[in-house]
Design a protein around this nucleic acid. Structure first.
Lengths: 233, 233
DNA sequence: CTAGACCGGAGCGAACCACTCCGCAACCGC
DNA sequence: GCGGTTGCGGAGTGGTTCGCTCCGGTCTAG
């Protein structure tokens, strides 16, 4: 083993800054969506703009790294869920972990950044892991039978952002944050319990198609000429 | 009664424009949050900026009207739910109606606009109506006993925005919109079913305090000097 | 045909954006 | 101690977007 695994105070501070930057980016992205600014991210992280730009050459590069880490967190959570012998506890824990991690904040930059090969392959692996989780739960009869992996993914995204927490953080009411996060966990628990088997009425409509996701990450239409005329024709 | 209740083509068009403006504002607010611009709202409504500013003196005035209409929709839905003799169907229908209406988009402007007396009193009436709905459902034993009205409100807000639908709308993929909205309804159905009585494990943590809401609408801190130092202290 | 209500959008100053550049302080080998 | 080096914070910059005003054009009423 290398005896010098304490890299250097210099490097340690840089790594801490990097973590702070990524966490700040998640928070600002949750609050400001597409309009999240690098200045806001740097300020939230307590780091200068210059430091941010030494680590990431552009804003897009920062967001790409954020997206990759998010997919990897998804995969880790799914792999850990599969190790749990209880199919329901595994699936419920997976959804809860992803939701609390803030998986839903990524929707804001979908279509705004380029998808790297690394992201695509990690995401494909995530799809397989989730499919395995869902199949196992279905076989055990603990998951309501009309739920598909796409439904689960959408639920994770839906729960992965808390308007309450985001807004309280934006207002700087740090005193209310713990209560807001606790409240959020209750809402997540309610929604996750809705996945259980044994509901009287089936889900409405047909299962959602996979294309809903595959098309989400293509770059947005270059020209924003949507017409919604309200005039008198 | 006035015999002239067909006002005039002029006025009818103005009213149509107003409805289009309000709906466009809801959509743009859902997509862009705090940064929603009047230009985007007017364009989405297919209306000139000048027309928007003739009807509403400022951007804040438009948002205030939007907030008031949202509270009134909440109240109407709650009153209609109380007329349903089935306590569960009433409550579930209420949550579903509010979520699909897009009640959650309002969180973005909470703290950014002033609260009028009209909004405050309508909101107070809404609290009473929801409390009645929840009590009735609890008495009938159809609602999981550890759920409070605050939990229900938070769930409505959580479901009241669909990242998927918002982003697909922003990308202009109108062809995918129906599928996205159908998928959204399934997620809402899952989460609402989680409110039912008969779950093995109680909700985590203590019931959330009312202060989470009462404090949300106060104006944001005038000075944004939050400190999150990441330096080496 | 004329008067005027009502519309759309160009234009304005201010604010904000992503990004660059540089002076400064903390760490290193010596 | 001490120069060299490394990473740092943030003022500066050109360009974009903001909320809002104002005016020429269009449709309606009589």
């Amino acid at each position: 083993m290398p005896p010098d695994d304490r890299p250097s105070p210099r490097r340690r501070r840089a790594e801490r800054n990097d973590r702070a930057l990524l966490q700040a980016a998640r928070e600002v992205l949750a609050e400001d969506g597409t309009h999240a600014s690098v200045a806001a991210i740097a300020a939230r992280a307590g780091v200068g703009i210059g430091s941010l730009y030494r680590r990431y050459r552009t804003k897009d590069e920062l967001f790409q790294r954020l997206a990759l880490l998010s997919v990897e967190h998804w995969n880790d959570a799914a792999a850990r869920a599969l190790e749990d012998h209880d199919p329901w506890r595994g699936l419920a824990g997976f959804v809860t972990a992803c939701a609390e991690f803030g998986q839903g904040t990524l929707g804001a930059i979908a279509g705004a950044i380029a998808v790297t090969d690394e992201m695509a392959s990690a995401s494909a692996r995530g799809d397989d892991l989730l499919a395995a989780l869902v199949v196992r739960a279905h076989d055990a009869g603990v998951l309501r039978p009309d739920v598909t992996p796409v439904d689960v993914t959408l639920l994770v995204e839906q729960l992965g952002r808390s308007p309450l927490v985001d807004q309280i953080r934006k207002q700087g009411r740090d005193d209310l944050l713990p209560a807001a996060e606790a409240a959020r966990r209750r809402v997540i628990a309610v929604a996750v319990d809705g996945l259980r088997a044994g509901h009287p009425a089936p889900l409405p409509g047909a299962p959602p198609p996979l294309s809903l996701f595959s098309e989400r990450w293509v770059r947005a239409r270059p020209e924003g000429a949507r017409r919604h005329r309200a005039g008198d024709g």
